[in-house]
Design a protein around this nucleic acid. Structure first.
Length: 650
DNA sequence: CCGACAATAT
DNA sequence: GATATTGTCG
């Protein structure tokens, strides 16, 4: 939006004053970058920490037009930041790296980067980066407004759903694709033909590609989670052949996803608390502080990093939900994770959890990303990790140092939570999940949850989280997250945060990115879920090497279709599970062998449900959000400090 | 066989 | 419209 406005103004020329957030851990590079950007007459904001960048973005979703980030950063992988941003806020992100390895570039692209610049960066390259802002904006507008007419057009032959395409800007090329199909004949029957019978059969399954998911998320965000109902979402999405039922089904999945997320978050918090003490391992994981990681969790969708994730989730945008993170959520991969990298986004098994792993991911949720690419890359992966990120680190981090975190937090801090705050309210629905969570939490003595009250975990959760883990959490918007606790009863879901800022913003941008999370709010319902599942989410896949890709939010991925159908093109996103991701991350270090820490976590988790609960970021998020809404203030007071929250966006 | 996902039923 | 159940598929 802002951009548009500007653009609109005759007076100013858009590029001038474009708000750019530059992120690089190397002070020198950052300074150089800042200088060059200023020469281009952009309004530049800098930060040497990715986590801080996320916080800033979450707090001020509509205060930036573009993000330019280094790939290699200690606190958070640039890709993760990318994913989270894509999910939570739809801002165009340009990756910067001294390493031009095609694989890295591909990764950046698949994770939603609109450009990938090699250092040293030349001013000539920076002079045109504003095009990405415009492009994104345009797409958004298109999508939104008209919607899709385009899509429809196509449909003719194929499926209508496609949807996807539009948006993306960046690279993508291929996006569309949806199903494969064979079968199908497409739509309708074609008639005739023989086929079988008519009727019947075929029904092409709708493949929720990243793009489609993106649209979904955008619609949800726009509506606000609480008001996002299938019919309205369908209207906003404006995708041809998509039916209300299709949307309802996806919404169901998406809501579960959000819950998970929130749970995860909570878990994390708990874990943190519990761990509290000790495990070095955790520390290891997150060097920085825990913040980052925690945030990651937020991201549930994959991408989101530590704070990010949550934030995302929290944020409306991120969730998409209005929450959720993500708007997109992005996510992908299946359980297999590794194996498939690409395909299923969501799925990661959660290691964490013990049993459950599974989380399911949602496919599409997350973001989008480069669709095509994704596919191609499948291998690469995407993943997003939305969740994960956070978790892992979070967890990890936390223990170590709460203190540190706290301290840090402030720094970060930033952000506001405003987003989250937004709402609050009500309560109606659903709380179910929360209750469980709480109970869970309470149940396990193991964890010490310092703060929590036991009684209700729910409520406490928030607190608990805060306290303990908080920090990490803090990252997220606090609000969101924590709130959950409160939630239980109420349940309010609403969190809409995303929009918060401006919904539009989120949406607007969006298009391209991924999806996942864009903004939505989520609801929060808690579900017990946690325990089990997290989702796979949108994200994911990536595992690869990349760092945490798993976590990342982005959905990238590709997709596969669930059924097999389509994998092809689309990426489906899955909602990934945060937890898994987290684990993954953790694991990462050790990869195969889990670190002690890792293990511990798991165990803990298992033992206590709490953990599990925490596991789902969504839930956490949701809860948080809700709670936050309710309590935001409290939180802020207490914990917030640190945290800040941020998240929103995405 | 199980888990995830979308469709379908309630 | 929200949920629960079912059918497919990987």
């Amino acid at each position: 939006m802002t951009v548009e406005t500007r653009m609109g103004d005759p007076g100013d020329q858009f590029p001038v004053g474009m708000r750019v957030l530059a992120v690089d851990d190397d002070p020198t590079c950052l300074l150089v970058l800042e200088t060059l950007l200023r020469r281009c007459q952009y309004h530049v904001t800098t930060t040497s920490q990715a986590t801080m960048a996320l916080k800033m973005l979450r707090e001020n979703k509509d205060k930036f037009d573009l993000v330019i980030s280094d790939v290699h950063m200690p606190d958070m992988d640039g890709f993760k930041l990318l994913e989270l941003v894509g999910l939570e806020m739809d801002l165009p992100v340009i990756m910067l790296s001294a390493n031009g390895d095609p694989k890295l570039v591909m990764k950046g692209i698949t994770h939603g980067a609109c450009d990938y610049l090699l250092k040293p960066v030349r001013i000539e390259e920076l002079k045109n980066i504003w095009q990405h802002v415009i492009r994104r904006k345009k797409f958004d507008a298109k999508d939104r407004n008209k919607g899709i007419s385009q899509d429809k057009a196509h449909s003719g032959s194929g499926n209508g759903l496609k949807s996807a395409g539009t948006g993306n800007s960046d690279q993508n090329g291929k996006m569309n694709k949806r199903r494969k199909d064979q079968d199908e004949e497409d739509e309708e029957n074609e008639n005739g033909h023989e086929n079988d019978d008519p009727s019947t059969q075929k029904k092409p399954r709708v493949v929720w590609s990243v793009e489609l998911h993106r649209k979904f998320v955008a619609a949800v965000n726009q509506l606000g989670i609480d008001k996002a109902v299938p019919k309205k979402i369908l209207d906003l999405m404006n995708v041809e052949k998509l039916t209300r039922e299709n949307v309802a089904s996806h919404l169901q999945k998406y809501r579960l996803y959000l819950k998970r997320i929130s749970c995860v978050t909570n878990q994390q918090a708990h874990m943190v608390a519990a761990l509290g003490s000790a495990d070095p391992s955790y520390l290891r994981m997150s060097p920085l502080g825990g913040l980052g990681h925690l945030q990651t969790l937020n991201s549930v969708f994959r991408s989101f990093p530590p704070s990010g994730m949550i934030g995302r989730l929290n944020t409306p945008a991120g969730l998409g939900v209005h929450g959720l993170p993500s708007s997109g959520i992005p996510p992908l991969g299946h359980g297999q994770n590794l194996n498939n990298s690409m395909n299923d986004p969501l799925k990661f098994p959660s290691t964490m959890v013990g049993g459950n792993q599974n989380a399911s991911a949602i496919q599409g949720m997350p973001v989008s990303i480069g669709f095509n690419q994704l596919r191609q890359n499948k291998a690469i992966t995407s993943v997003e990790d939305l969740n994960t990120g956070i978790d892992d680190k979070t967890l990890l981090a936390i223990p170590n140092k709460l203190t540190d975190l706290r301290a840090r937090t402030p720094l970060v801090g930033v952000t506001n939570n405003s987003l989250m705050l937004e709402t609050h309210t009500q309560g109606t629905q659903g709380s179910r999940g929360y209750e469980n969570l709480s109970s869970v939490a309470s149940q396990h003595p193991e964890f010490p949850l310092p703060f929590l009250d036991h009684g209700r975990c729910s409520d406490d959760w928030s607190t608990a989280v805060q306290s303990s883990g908080i920090h990490p959490i803090s990252s997220y918007p606090s609000t969101q997250c924590f709130r959950q606790s409160a939630i239980p009863s109420t349940d309010n879901m609403h969190l809409k945060p995303l929009h918060v800022g401006n919904p539009s913003a989120a949406s607007s941008i969006d298009s391209v990115t991924d999806m996942p999370s864009q903004g939505p709010t989520f609801t929060n319902t808690p579900s017990q879920i946690c325990s089990n599942a997290l989702f796979q989410g949108w994200d994911d896949h990536n595992q690869d090497d990349n760092f945490q890709s798993m976590n990342s939010l982005i959905p990238v991925n590709g997709a596969v279709g669930p059924s097999g159908h389509a994998p092809i093109n689309d990426l489906d996103y899955n909602y990934g599970d945060l937890l898994q991701m987290k684990h993954a991350e953790v694991t990462k270090s050790a990869k195969e062998k889990p670190n002690q820490g890792y293990i511990m976590d798991q165990q803990k988790a298992q033992h206590s449900r709490t953990t599990n609960s925490l596991g789902s970021l969504e839930d956490l998020v949701s809860a948080m959000m809700k709670q936050e809404q309710n309590k935001v203030k409290l939180m802020e007071g207490e914990f917030m400090c640190d945290s800040y929250s941020g998240g929103t966006s995405m």
